[in-house]
Computed example of a mutant assay.
Amino acid sequence: MHEMSIAMAVVAQVAEAAEAGGARAVSEVRLQVGELAGVVPDALAFCFELACADTVLAGATLVTDTVPARAGCRSCSADWAVGMPPDLCCPGCGSAAGTELRSGRELQIAHVTWDDSPAAAHHREPIPEER
């Protein structure tokens, strides 16, 4: 399952950035996932949870935003939703040679939310000794 390798790569990149930024905890990671990227969101979410264990991302939420697949025609300038299975023939002029996939293959970290302030739970006043 390649979702585990994707999850591990995302966790490694976010953990490195978070620790460099002084983060105490990461609460959310938002990914853009193209509908043609070949990623199963539920499998990725499961793997992400496992990959986050014992890291600054432990307990973080993964949010995936699906990017629709769109294509365009260089011949007639038509733009269309590719759909599944992908239809790369131009609906305007019928050409397949002049089409280009414009979106739908994305797999990128779009946003990370972390807490870089001193956590109240980590700060405790000393308990006065009883006399």
Rank of each mutant, 00 (worst) to 15 (best):
L57T: 08
S75V: 00
C76S: 12
P86D: 09
A121E: 14
R105T: 15
A69I: 10
P126W: 05
V67T: 05
M8I: 11
A9I: 04
V112G: 03
L31Q: 06
I109D: 00
A15T: 13
Q32E: 14
Q13A: 15
A60M: 13
E19M: 12
S95T: 08
A53E: 05
L44Q: 05
V26D: 01
E28F: 01
T113S: 12
S27I: 08
C76Q: 15
S95A: 08
Q32W: 07
E125G: 04
L62W: 06
A110K: 02
G98A: 11
C73A: 14
E16N: 10
E3Q: 07
A121W: 06
P41V: 05
P128F: 07
V63Q: 08
G92R: 01
V39A: 01
L107R: 02
S103V: 06
R74K: 15
W80I: 14
R70K: 15
A15G: 00
E129H: 12
S117E: 10
A120D: 15
G21E: 13
T64I: 09
T99I: 11
L101A: 10
R131D: 15
A45L: 03
Q32Y: 08
V10D: 11
Q13S: 12
T61P: 09
V56F: 04
A20W: 09
E16I: 03
W80N: 10
E16V: 01
C89I: 09
Q13W: 00
A71N: 12
E3V: 00
A45F: 10
